[in-house]
């Protein structure tokens, strides 16, 4: 009983957008104790937070605002506790997005969100839906949740926009799609985020949740 109470709790942020259940299933499969919640108090007391999301940046920020979660998430990140973003959840961590003019994000990572390009020389469908590879950047993966992920692993992507960090030092992986060569994962102090969906990327992806959990003593 005591062991159960001691177990670290990870909160998956529910802001009424997209599907949180596959993230939950993947987390549970690696032994994480997860709760889906949009309650400020529960988030504050969490040992770690995962910000998932699919859909539009503007809708997501509106929902976070309406649920009064913007400062909760910013405070959580400043507390130094682990924060993981997935897909739109990674994009929301940035300063702003060019979607619908210019929408402000959580501003935890400096940079902006831009639309994927399709060019005459390299025509691609946007959104990108499907598998693509992640290659290493200048930042070594050894001290990150990707430490056991082979370079050039295939990951599952679903997105029309990508993150362009101001500082290269946060870029953990690079992905190419048509004419676009973009940052597909970031790592900065307690913040880790992926544009791809590790929970939909076979055991190779699920292992990333496991490494993140181990690194942060969550399991």
């Amino acid at each position: 009983m005591q062991a159960l109470e001691m177990k670290k709790k990870v909160v998956i942020i529910d802001y009424d957008l997209g599907n949180l259940f596959s993230v939950k299933l993947a987390c549970e499969s690696v032994g994480l104790n997860v709760e889906i919640s949009g309650d400020k108090k529960i988030i504050k007391n969490a040992d770690a937070v995962i910000l998932p999301g699919v859909g539009s940046f503007g809708d997501a920020m509106n929902n976070l605002k309406q649920l009064d979660l913007i400062s909760s998430l910013q405070d959580f990140a400043l507390s130094g506790k682990p924060l993981m973003g997935v897909c739109l959840g990674m994009q929301l961590l940035f300063t702003s997005s060019e979607e619908f003019g210019n929408t402000q994000g959580l501003n935890l990572i400096s940079g902006e969100i831009r639309k994927l390009r399709s060019t005459i020389d390299s025509p691609v469908k946007v959104p990108q839906i499907g598998w693509n590879t992640i290659t290493s950047s200048k930042v070594p993966w050894l001290q990150t949740p990707l430490k056991n992920t082979p370079a050039n692993s295939y990951m599952y992507f679903v997105h029309s926009f990508y993150a362009a960090p101001v500082n290269d030092a946060v870029t953990l992986t690079i992905t190419k799609y048509g004419d676009n060569e973009y940052c597909s994962a970031i790592f900065k102090d307690n913040i880790f985020a992926t544009q791809f969906h590790p929970e939909k990327s076979t055991e190779t992806g699920v292992k990333i949740y496991k490494e993140w959990a181990l690194m942060n003593n969550l399991i």
């Binding site: 699919v54 859909g55 809708d59």
Partner: peptide, 8 residues
């Protein structure tokens, strides 16, 4: 698509 995301 608004509620669950186009990709869903």
């Amino acid at each position: 698509s608004r509620k669950f995301g186009s990709s869903t």
